[in-house]
Computed example of a mutant assay.
Amino acid sequence: MLKGSAREGEAALSFLSVFLHELSLTVAQIPQNGRHEARVLDDMLDTIQRVFGNKWMITLDAAYTESGLTGRIIEAGGAYFVPLKNNTRILKEWAELAFQYPSVMTYQDEERCSGETWIRTTSTQTEIPEDILLTLPAAQTLIRREHHVTHRDGHVTHEVRFAVSSVLLTAREAEDVWRQHWSIENRSHHRRDTIFYEDRCRLRQGAQGLAVLHGILLTLLQAQTRQLTDLVRRLSVPDNLMLAAS
């Protein structure tokens, strides 16, 4: 979801976008216009099918975890990967119960970043409770993702999350999909705001066209360097120097 700043008496502009991980490119986009995200995405499914045919998987946030939308995704020839959070509490409880039995497989990785150590353990279960199948048709894999984070000060945090996919996934595949989904924040949203200041944009006419142009420019720039946001920060000119130059 791309959002711009609000103006007095007006709601902020927001566009629901489909982001293709392989190209780091926004391939479809539609204004939200005050509608729930799930309803906007429903309107985009025909476009997605025309672009990608019948073999694609869409990763979603918990706001989209409902039978109507996931059923439409299956009808359109696609597959889904959706998390189970507190807004789907009953489904989450069923997932917790399912993982009291041995998982089909488990994958673990460790990452050190900015002085922190992350240990992630991803497990999959293919025995899907009936209550989950009634809400999320064609579900084939339950995913449990547990991570321990050791912070710089030695403090340790622990969290367990759950997701469901209509694709039969190994634990390693499930971890890869999950990490790709959350990389959208860094690979698209954060870069759009850092480079193009989209969150502060007050444009109304032509805003959707400008957002599309930003997506294309990002793809071209990212093809040249992986350190795009760091480069932009280094190239930033202090306000006092710009005033002196003028």
Rank of each mutant, 00 (worst) to 15 (best):
L2Q: 07
L2N: 05
S5T: 11
R7L: 13
E8L: 10
G9M: 05
A11I: 02
A11E: 12
A11T: 09
S14G: 09
S17L: 04
F19Y: 12
F19G: 00
H21I: 00
S24W: 02
L25Q: 07
L25A: 08
V27M: 04
Q29A: 05
P31H: 08
N33G: 10
G34K: 06
E37G: 03
V40Q: 06
M44N: 07
L45K: 09
L45E: 10
R50C: 09
F52W: 08
W56Y: 10
W56M: 04
T59E: 00
L60D: 00
D61S: 01
D61A: 01
T65Y: 00
S67V: 06
S67M: 07
G68H: 09
G71R: 04
I73F: 04
I74A: 12
I74N: 05
N87D: 14
R89G: 13
L91N: 13
W94T: 08
W94Q: 15
A95N: 11
E96P: 00
F99C: 14
Q100L: 15
Q100D: 15
Q100F: 14
Q108G: 07
D109T: 15
E111A: 04
C113M: 04
C113L: 10
S114A: 13
R120T: 09
T122G: 11
T124G: 05
T124E: 04
E127K: 14
I132P: 07
L133T: 08
L134P: 03
T135D: 15
L136E: 08
A138E: 14
A139M: 06
A139L: 07
T141L: 02
T141P: 02
R144A: 13
V149G: 04
D153S: 10
G154H: 08
T157L: 01
H158M: 03
A163F: 01
V164Y: 00
V167W: 02
L168Y: 08
A171W: 03
V177D: 02
Q180K: 08
E185W: 01
H189M: 06
R191W: 05
T194E: 14
D199H: 01
R204H: 04
A207P: 00
V212S: 07
I216V: 10
L218W: 01
T219D: 02
L221G: 01
Q222W: 00
A223S: 07
Q224L: 13
Q227S: 14
V232N: 09
L235F: 14
L243T: 14
L243W: 12
L243K: 15
